[in-house]
Design a binder for these strands. Sequence first.
RNA 1: GCCGGGGUGCCCUAGCCAGGAAGGGGGCUGGCCUGGAGAGCCAGUGGCCCACACGGGCCGCGUGGGUUCAAAUCCCACCCCCGGCGCCA
Length: 457
Amino acid sequence: MSWSVLKALRENPDVLRENLRKRFMPAELVDKALELDKKWREVVTELNQVREKRNKINRMIPRVSKEEREKLIKESKELARLEEELNRKARELSEERDRVLSSLPALLHESVPIGPDETYNKPIRFWGKPRVPKSKLESFLKETDGFKVEYELIDWEPRGHADQLEQVLKLGDTLRAAEISGRRFFYLYKDIVWLEQALIMLALDHLTKKGFVPVIPPYMMREKYYLGVVDLETFKDSIYKVEDEDLYLIATSEHPLIAMHAGDTFVEEELPRLYVGVSPCFRKEAGTHGKDTKGIFRVHQFTKVEQIVFSLPEESWKWHEELIKNAEEIYQMLEIPYRVVNIASGDLGAVAAKKYDLEAWFPAQGRYRELVSCSNCLDWQSYRLRIKVDRKGRREFVHTLNSTALATTRTITAILENFQREDGSVEIPKALRKYLEPFEAAPKDVIVPIKEKYVKT
RNA sequence: GCCGGGGUGCCCUAGCCAGGAAGGGGGCUGGCCUGGAGAGCCAGUGGCCCACACGGGCCGCGUGGGUUCAAAUCCCACCCCCGGCGCCA
């Protein structure tokens, strides 16, 4: 049993080189890893031989005469020095090798579009009938190029979600939040709070009906486990650390949910394991200065319902399709027009072998924007966390998959734009009403502007 | 946070005081036996390296150090679990 990437390195390095080329990463990494691996194996072989010799001597010591004993102890001590030196060398080499190895990305699926950046992402299907303001028609036609997407042309301009939330409805405040906590934080009030709760319930309801087990995970985790689920770049750019503690705030419940099975060996019948995680997500959003600066589209903290699957290796591609389908069903229930995009190789993280994004139509922006990410990580995470399946004595690493079911803030922004009426009110998607019905204070059909803001900004 | 007990392979457990090649049971896999099944018996059931293979070796008893020719066993630090005390929403 070995990691598919390590196996490829030793048996078929050209496959790995090709993989790196397709991801626009330096292919020399392969040669470096190969060389380190080769050297390490040489040193380990030699080290094992020295140890064998010394072990044999040590086992003889209690069974020989006193004079003989002195001689053997001396010999053993000499070998110990040699062993220590080889051991140090082997350790250095393996650490260096593992550093290179852990920077190697998952093997791409053949259907991943090849290209250096997101402009090569490939839309694969569209759903819904978007409302398109006249001013955004050209942009819409470009975004749907090659597909026949029915749309409704409207002759008024919906407000962007940020203005709609803060200026018109007055149900959110990012200015005061910026003062209290910093940019990319928010206060949300009243109907939006109910809306968020209803969205969580809708997603939970939908997935638990399909057998996903709901989980609330720890919101912080140790570095050791974090490095089992994300690559170093992601770690540096998106994860908050707790001062003076070996703890990091989770960027998604995917991370503690995958780590939940660290070190476990499943029996075949226990797979697949399906989970739906609910948690706040904390992200530094480093390197996104200037992007989506208004409103709550890109924020440091939001709530997300997440699908997680631990699957048999041969079933992971089936589950990948299943997860994106589940997410699509949720947005169909919410009646939010969307498209599914196959993410290009250069835009794909090291952990994923293939990724679908579900992008919702935003009428005021005239663009499709990401709401959902759905990835198959193959054995990238399970190798690091030693999550295995015992198949009648033979062991393999399981495959792990993750997909957003619903991220609350982004879905709220999509509702604010797609369900906005010309008079400034926002209709509530019908599928949410049953989750609002039991509560007296909750809105039922429509969200209307309130008279006063809660803070004097 | 303090005091005490503990962590052994997929699961349970012996070994620790008194250092010298990890033993038993269960489960699972394969084989023998059987008309068939069961029982019984035999073997296998952590990771790594060398080897086409047959095999051989190394590491591994929560993690990392130390003592020693030799550590599951002795010493130190840390993590986790159980019990008690303390603190607390």
